[in-house]
Amino acid sequence: MRLQAEHIQKSYGKHRILTDVSFTLSPGECVGIVGVNGCGKSTLLSVLSGIAKADGGSITLNGKSGRSIFRKIGLVPQDNPLIPDLSVRDNLKLWYSDPDAARPYLKLLGITPFYKQQIRKLSGGQKKRVSIAIAMASDPAILLLDEPGAALDLPCKYQIRAFLKQYLANGNSAVLTTHEEADLDLCSRLYLLKDGRLLPQPATLRGTELLHILQNGSKR
C-alpha cells in the first residue's frame, strides 16, 4: 500500500508543531525519521495513524482518504498501551477479535513464555513486544514505530529488529522514529524533522555527520 502525506500541519494551541510535512511511503519501504527531542516526531506519527487530526494537509492510502484508511495503519507508541492489572492474554483479547490471529506474533515476538503473566510484572522489553503484537491486531500494511528500542536491552532490540525485517520482507511498509543508529540500518530512506518540516537526508548518514545534522540542521 502506498501512503502519501502532503503538506501536513499540526498545532497544539498557539504552538505550531508540524509546519509543512510531505512524504511518500511505497510498499516494502522503511522510512527513518530522526530529530531532536520535542521536534514533533511522535506528533507526526499520531497524525499519520489517525489518532490526532491534522490541522491542514491530506493523508491518502492508495489514493483513498477518510477515517477508514487508518484501519490499515498500526502504531507502536513510545509508551505502551497496556492495562497493567490484566495479563498479556487479556490485553491481547481486547484488541484481537479472533484470538488465533495473535498466535503467530506470540512466537515471532517471543511473548509465549510470559503470555499469562500480569503486565505489571513484565520488563520494559517484554511490554514493548506486547505493544507490537497489539499494533498488529488489525493486520496493518503500514506500521508506525515511535522509538521502538528506547530503554530496551540489546537482545530485545535485536528481536524487534528481526521482527521488523520479516514484516518488511512480507511487502509491508514502516515508518520508524529513532535515536538509535542501528535502527537506521533497516531504513531505505532517512528524514530529519526540523522546524516542523521533513528534510531528506542520505540513508547512510551516521556518526558525527548525523550528530552535526541533528545539532545544526545541515551537513558540515
Partner: peptide, 10 residues
Amino acid sequence: KCLLAQFRQS
C-alpha cells in the same frame, strides 16, 4: 494517554 489513544484508534 497512549491507551486512550489506542482505544480511539481501534
